Amino acid sequence: MQKILVFTDIHLVPEGETIIGLDPLARFAQGMAHALDHHPDAARVVLCGDLSHNAAPPEYARLRAALDTCPLPVSLMLGNHDRRAPFLGAFPDADRMDTGHIQHVTDLPGYRLICLDTLNEEADDTHSGWLCAARLDWLDAALAGADDRRLIVFTHHPPIDTGFKGMDWIGLKNRADLVARLNTAGNVAQIVSGHIHRTIQGSAGGIPVAIFKSPCHQMPMALGYQDSSLSIAEPGAYGLLLLTDEGVIVHSEDFTLPPTEAQTYT
């Protein structure tokens, strides 16, 4: 069994600033410490976009400093709050395509992890996602090269509606193109996304979809609301994927809950 740690929607802000009274960097550091303490045998950490809140260079510099001591390999992805130029200023090696798109593949025994760049910097609504022809072509090649491995596809914007109307409005606009390609591949075991700031399970074309919460601020359980900026100080979380011979097992860990001692019951 292999483990993958997933953090999404970190939203780092400049030093001294907060989001609804929460310090994103402190929350992320707390979550990473918890994850590394409980799962030091993880194969990799995936940061699933919205690394910064304002796409400002100092925010990416803070992230780089926070990751300097991480003992595990890290896959970095972009979300709607990110921008490629300032991100690449702090992480110049992250442009694996040499096109400015932050997409990459990691092969593990029996599995291939595919991280997609759904950021649309030209979106009229500012925050929706899009996969252009170049990115979809790259995906086709990544899918075709997986051989007999199971595939796990990571996106910031989920490929499904979630019931939160404001967030769904700024979702992945051409998700049908993505789902069609994944279904054609035939060996996609799991899609993992962020963006919504809630723990959600769903299905895209029959493929399981797991959406994880932020380590910082969450979307309140307000189905149907149009406002995509609603936030609440619920427990922060990270995701844990267990890659087994039978398939993918998905867990979510609320790491900010007070520690409690396990007890037996009869």
Rank of each mutant, 00 (worst) to 15 (best):
G236T: 03
R150H: 12
I19N: 07
A146S: 14
D137K: 10
L36P: 04
D168R: 04
D93A: 12
A33H: 09
H104D: 15
V248K: 04
N54T: 10
K165A: 06
F154V: 15
D98I: 10
L36H: 02
A26W: 13
E15R: 11
H195I: 09
L76P: 01
R175D: 01
K213V: 10
A144Y: 06
P58G: 07
R112K: 03
P24Y: 08
P73I: 06
H53S: 14
A133S: 10
V179H: 02
H53T: 13
V250H: 15
V13F: 02
V153T: 08
G31K: 02
S52I: 06
N120V: 14
V153E: 01
D168C: 09
A204Q: 04
G206Q: 12
T18H: 13
T18A: 07
K173S: 08
E261C: 05
F212I: 11
T118E: 05
A85I: 11
S52Q: 08
R135D: 03
L76A: 14
A61L: 08
L223W: 05
G16H: 06
D82V: 04
P215H: 00
L243P: 00
G206I: 12
H197M: 06
P14H: 11
T244E: 08
P73T: 06
G194K: 05
D124R: 15
L178F: 01
N183Y: 08
E15C: 06
G186Y: 01
Q30I: 04
Q226K: 15
L47Y: 00
F87V: 00
T162C: 03
A94I: 05
N183W: 05
H34I: 04
Q263K: 06
L72F: 01
P259D: 03
G145T: 05
P215M: 00
L240P: 04
S193W: 01
G166S: 13
I170T: 06
A204C: 11
R198S: 12
L5D: 07
A65N: 10
Q103Y: 03
I249E: 14
Q103R: 11
D68S: 14
A43D: 14
P73C: 09
P208R: 02
G186F: 02
G239L: 07
Y225N: 14
A233N: 13
Q201L: 04
P14V: 09
N187A: 09
D107R: 04
I102H: 01
A94E: 03
L243T: 03
I170G: 08
A66D: 01
G206F: 07
Q263N: 13
H127Q: 04
H53K: 10
R149N: 10
Y238P: 03
N54H: 09
I232P: 12
Q201W: 11
G166M: 07
I102P: 01
R135M: 06
H251N: 13
R112L: 08
V209R: 02
D254N: 14
F212Q: 09
T256R: 03
H53V: 12
L178N: 03
R150C: 13
L223C: 09
L88D: 00
A65L: 04
R135W: 02
C216H: 01
H53D: 10
A237H: 00
T155P: 06
A123I: 13
A142V: 05
S228H: 12
A133G: 14
L139Y: 02
I196E: 02
L88P: 02
G31E: 02
D98W: 07
D23V: 11
I211F: 10
P58C: 09
